[in-house]
Design a protein around this nucleic acid. Sequence first.
DNA 1: CGAGCGGCTGTGGTCGGACCACAGCATAGC
DNA 2: GCTATGCTGTGGTCCGACCACAGCCGCTCG
Lengths: 245, 245
Amino acid sequence: MKNYELVLQQVEADLAAGRLRLGGRLPGERALAEQLGISRPSVREAVRVLEALGVVRTATGSGPEAGAVIVAEPSAPLTALLRLHLATSHLPMHDIVQTRVLLESWSAQEAAGLFAEKARHEVAGEDLVAKLAVAEELLERMDGEGLSPEEFHLLDAEFHVALAGLAGNVLIAAVMGSLRSAIHGYVLAAVPNLPNWDATAIGLRTEHRAIVAAIRDGQGDDAARLVTEHIEGFYRAARLSSPTW
Amino acid sequence: MKNYELVLQQVEADLAAGRLRLGGRLPGERALAEQLGISRPSVREAVRVLEALGVVRTATGSGPEAGAVIVAEPSAPLTALLRLHLATSHLPMHDIVQTRVLLESWSAQEAAGLFAEKARHEVAGEDLVAKLAVAEELLERMDGEGLSPEEFHLLDAEFHVALAGLAGNVLIAAVMGSLRSAIHGYVLAAVPNLPNWDATAIGLRTEHRAIVAAIRDGQGDDAARLVTEHIEGFYRAARLSSPTW
DNA sequence: CGAGCGGCTGTGGTCGGACCACAGCATAGC
DNA sequence: GCTATGCTGTGGTCCGACCACAGCCGCTCG
């Protein structure tokens, strides 16, 4: 048993037992070291791991914001995980695209179902409408003139993540967000492969609007199909089917 | 920019550029520290992070197995990630079950499609058959008498992960494996909720065999439906719809 | 009396050096 | 030729020190 693992065990146990909770703070590194009978470097290695897993956020200085604060940020570590394993070339780009299609088409279908239910039962669904409004606002911004491919793609990524959030599954939304972030650099690098960026952007905008319309109208099958074609079409056009360039 | 992040960047860049590859080794901690102009403790923190993310495996001693060896083990860190964030109650059990249903039903459908294609085109597919054989062997072992719920469930988890692997998407298979590992403890704790464990086990065995048969026969829709019912049925029976006990 | 400013304190961030345990390997001795 | 022993390089751990940072408190000056 390596020493730093003692800290991980301790923190996990404290979390599970409720002795540590969101917003709380870990004891100082020096105090933790003395409590567990290990050295400060060992404690620091453990804190780094917790930080890498999105469990704590560290900051220097003093006050309530300083120190190792307990947070719950699964997306960032998921992104790092995917990026690194993508870099090892043991995570084929094809698998990532396939996963995106699966998660996003499911989300679209689910979201459309929620809208259909809302229409049938006259249920509230303000939350749903608000989320869709956020997505549509992103579409507006994507209509702006003079957007660079990078700016456009950042908005596009946000839009897709917002769509995934419509279904209300935080795990799937987190995975989607991480997938987008992890491949962002790769997608940008593939933009020059496109025969005509402006034409591509116009097509993407049109497809986005069709997807939103299908979801709002509760047409789940249409929404899922449109999302699938949208994603696969782009990756095919950008010849982004492989992580080897 | 913290110093240890220099190491992460360097390693990621080396991985992407092919200067580091699977099975290769990182330079020694002392060498790495000198190369980047930082101290060994900083390097060590970075190596810990890489280890926590499943990118390297460290070992003492000398020889080709010693040092920081590049590996690609995304499942272990994913499991840790999910476990920790489950503990913070920011990951509802319902979302996890929903995700399982999505990933597993997709995998089953995809795998059935592969079998159907294999039957049509007389293509090789030894790999596919071998994987299915592994899954079936797990079913045999699950037939054993006197299995404790824990032993049964471990085999069950392996079986489901094997099914997810049939579709050949390493990302989805990894996520599935991590989901199973992360909730293993929760599922076991819910076994007492079942009215009759022996009867449940018999039902699960029957359903498993039906799923395998549907996949082998290339009946994708049936396979997906059976998987969905199988998973949802169990969670409903175990009243495992919420992370609060 | 009040407001502003400057140390004080506690936090993480970094460093250099030291020693240990371990595993392989080369070499000396049998 | 074979065995055993020490050498070497690896990560694992520790110590003590110093730095940068941010909030807090008290002092000083207007």
